[in-house]
Computed example of a mutant assay.
Amino acid sequence: MAALQATPPSLSAAVAAFVGLALIGGLIGIVGTVVVRRLRNPVGKYRLLYGVVLFPYVLLSYAVLALTGSGAAFLTALPASPELLDGVLSQFVTFLAAGCIWLVSYLPTVRGVRDVRDVELATSTAISKMTRYVVGLSAVLTVVLAPLQVFSLASSPLVFVLALVSLILGMLYVSPWLIPVLRSTSTPTGERADRVEQLCSRAGLNVRDIRILETENEETASTVVRGPPNYRRLFVTSTFLDVFDDETATALLAIEAGKRRTHVFEIRLGTVLVASVALIASVMGIGPRWPLLGLSLGVVLIGFWLGRRRIRAADEYAAEQVGKTTVADALTEYADMHALEPTRRRIPNPLSIKVALGDRIDRLRTAGDR
């Protein structure tokens, strides 16, 4: 946190650090997209590039900017603000700077994704949408994390960790109202509303209301359900409703319903939170270091294994609703729509949070043939 830095660097040093991190991020994006486009199944590899390379690098950049107090240094170039707001504004500027590094890293990949998926998505449109997401998320994270300044790491590290976990859970529970702030959404009306309701009914997906995510030329056909147990909201992209027929859409929504019934999201979230708390406690010296590290690793292995089993159970639930062959065909069509090559694994990856898509399809088809 910026608050941890007693003496922030000069403005020129902060700018130099930001420019250096941004240039490295842009270079990673350029090299990454060149490599990925030469690999098999490039769309899937782009997802790995974002999740395994670029996102961790942006987190590292945020940590560098925060621990060196760059946010406070950037504020010196702005008009003076009340002292009470300095900490909040410093955090927002730091998040925004890290978000700008993400944009610089993301920019070189837009053209590559457009080419391998053969979609007509303008670079300016992609960057504009990502910029809105970055600014909105920076503001939300600032509001959420500002209360953590009340908790002193030196006096009560355990209270700090528990407060952080509570804030993360609270942020996830308000996500039905948060997502419309970060992305363009609309409420379905008329025939579209009737169709979505019928699809959900056939799929066995019970939600309180529905929002359409406007994807325009992105051609991303996906669904997600978020919210507390008594207020589930379905977000479905406009492309999903445009390109999939009722049979395919019902099967994919049935998988989503199966994930809700088997608590896939809760298992993943619980695994990450418990493992993170144990890891943080180990690093901060709250309890025995090595047993806590072992606990963190054990929770990850068991939680991810259980999550993979629950995904298979969600597929089984969907198969009960519409048939195994229909679900397999729907997953195949989903892969074709996104130019994904269904991957298969001879040996399961214990650190994978997902089941290989090709293995899911093969399992359903084998069961359907029987």
Rank of each mutant, 00 (worst) to 15 (best):
E218Y: 14
P342F: 04
A163K: 02
P228W: 03
F240G: 09
W305D: 12
T215E: 14
L273P: 10
Q198P: 08
W290K: 09
T187K: 09
V236Y: 00
V277I: 06
E266G: 05
V196L: 07
L85I: 09
R183H: 07
S90R: 11
A16L: 11
T109A: 01
V34S: 12
N230C: 08
A14I: 01
V19D: 10
L158G: 09
E333V: 14
D245F: 11
V159D: 12
G294Q: 02
S296M: 04
G368H: 09
K259F: 09
S175H: 13
V272Q: 13
V277C: 08
G204L: 08
L67Q: 15
E247P: 11
R192I: 08
A126R: 01
S81I: 13
E316V: 10
R360M: 02
I302P: 01
S186E: 13
A14F: 05
P147G: 07
E316P: 04
G51R: 09
S201A: 15
R114A: 07
L23N: 10
V15T: 11
G294M: 10
C100K: 00
Q149E: 13
P56T: 03
A356P: 03
R232V: 07
P9Y: 08
T271P: 05
T366D: 14
E266S: 04
V300T: 03
V53S: 10
F304D: 04
A335K: 03
N41F: 02
V207D: 00
D336T: 13
V144I: 02
V134M: 07
I267D: 09
A278R: 00
I101K: 06
T131C: 02
K45M: 13
Q321C: 12
I286N: 12
R132E: 12
L49K: 00
P82N: 10
L172M: 15
A6G: 09
T215A: 10
A254H: 09
D336N: 08
Y106S: 03
L84I: 13
L21G: 07
A22L: 11
D329Q: 09
I101C: 00
V43I: 02
I361T: 05
L153R: 10
L292Q: 02
C200S: 13
F304V: 03
V161Q: 05
W305T: 08
W305F: 12
F265N: 11
L67G: 15
T366N: 15
T94E: 04
Q5A: 15
L153H: 06
A318W: 01
S105E: 00
L295D: 03
C200A: 10
D246H: 05
A80D: 11
M337S: 14
P79I: 05
A319S: 14
I28K: 03
L153Y: 11
P180N: 00
T220Q: 14
L351A: 13
L65T: 07
I255Y: 06
A257S: 08
S128P: 08
L67H: 14
P291Y: 00
L295T: 05
R346K: 12
E219A: 15
L252G: 04
S352P: 10
S138V: 10
